[in-house]
Amino acid sequence: METGKSTSGEQPTSGWPLAEAEPRPEEAQSAEVPTPGEGPGSGERSSVDGLGLGAVVTGILLLSPVAIVLGHLALRRAKRRPAQSRTLAIAGTILGYLGLLVTVGAVVAYTTTLGPELDRASADAHAQADVTAVGNAVAVALESDATLPEVAVADGSYTVGDTELEALLDGERTLELTGTSRTDWCVELGYESGDLSTVSYVGTAGFRDAACA
């Protein structure tokens, strides 16, 4: 009986496994080296992600113009990238436009509503301080002379007898002192830039947010 021969064209076999053929050098090199711009460490991918991240950060900080510019640059550079690489760019661009709308809305609200209200409140506070200062000056003047002193409005100030007082209130103002004695008198200050328009200081009661009775 013969051994070691094959039949029907079969290769002879033995108890040892056949060694796999090693790849040729050019095939191994092409399998190991990624195509430029496609690998995980690609510089272009990292620059696109950096622009998108910058757009998101500046959008959160309400630096809207910067966020919009960075977002559009990131979108332009991410046109040939997977959808995931566009996420930060889209989010940053949306945040930029939302921040711009919020800023414009705040400016409009301030100039049309909040700003004028704050100006009127400030004028009322200044009027209260001015009429109180004039009233105190009148009281001091009456301590040495029972005659009511002359009061007047000057440019940026008030005068009570020979005393000049700095005015905090701007704009058109009127000042009047009425009374009959050291205790029965009232200083009235009129103005147009506030909500009250008229405040007074009574010798026996002090400040009032209304005209003299």
Results as ranks from 00 to 15, higher is better:
Leu73Gln: 07
Gly50Ala: 11
Leu95Ala: 00
Thr87Gln: 03
Val151Leu: 04
Asp184Ala: 09
Pro17Arg: 12
Thr132Cys: 08
Leu63Thr: 12
Gly171Leu: 14
Leu142Tyr: 06
Leu70Met: 11
Asp124His: 00
Arg76Met: 14
Ser181Leu: 03
Leu98Met: 06
Gln29Lys: 13
Val160Gly: 08
Leu169Asp: 03
Gly179Ala: 09
Leu61Glu: 14
Glu27Leu: 12
Glu10Trp: 15
Glu27Asp: 15
Ala31His: 07
Thr147Ala: 09
Arg86Glu: 02
Ala123Pro: 05
Thr112Phe: 09
Val151Met: 05
Pro12Tyr: 07
Glu22Gln: 13
Arg45Pro: 02
Leu189Gly: 08
Glu150Met: 04
Arg24Phe: 01
Leu51His: 01
Pro36Arg: 02
Glu164Lys: 14
Ala205Gln: 08
Pro12Cys: 11
Ala121Gly: 14
Gly71Thr: 08
Leu100Pro: 02
Ser47Ile: 07
Ala106Glu: 06
Ile94Gln: 01
Val48Asp: 08
Val138Arg: 01
Gly39Tyr: 06
Glu150Ser: 10
Pro116Tyr: 07
Ser200Asp: 07
Arg182Ser: 13
Ala146Asp: 12
Glu38His: 11
Ala83Arg: 04
Leu101Cys: 06
Val151Pro: 04
Thr113Ile: 14
Asp124Arg: 03
Leu95Val: 02
Ala89Met: 02
Thr35Asn: 09
Ala139Asn: 06
His126Cys: 12
Gly43Trp: 03
Gly52Ala: 05
Gly43Lys: 12
Arg80His: 13
Glu26Asn: 13
Leu61Tyr: 12
Val134Asn: 07
Ala106Cys: 06
Thr58Met: 08
Leu114Gly: 04
Val138Pro: 09
Gly71Asn: 08
Glu2Thr: 08
Leu101Gly: 12
Ala74His: 05
Thr163Met: 14
Val199Ala: 08
Leu189Val: 10
Gly156Thr: 10
Leu98Tyr: 05
Ser197Tyr: 09
Asn136His: 08
Met1Val: 07
Ser47Met: 09
Glu192Gln: 15
Ala89Gly: 01
Trp16Lys: 13
Gly59Glu: 05
Gly92Ser: 04
Leu189Ile: 11
Ser42Asp: 02
Ala125Ile: 13
Trp185Pro: 04
Gly115Met: 04
Thr58Lys: 05
Thr198Ser: 11
Asp49Phe: 01
Val140Met: 10
Asp155Met: 03
Pro36Thr: 06
Gly190Ser: 11
Ala31Glu: 10
Cys186Phe: 09
Tyr110Trp: 15
Glu166Gln: 07
Ser42Gly: 00
His72Lys: 00
Arg86Ile: 00
Ser197Pro: 12
Asp195Glu: 10
Ser14Trp: 10
Leu142Gly: 06
Ala167Ile: 05
Glu2Pro: 08
Ile94Asn: 01
Gly99Ala: 02
Gly15Trp: 03
Val202Ile: 09
Leu118Met: 12
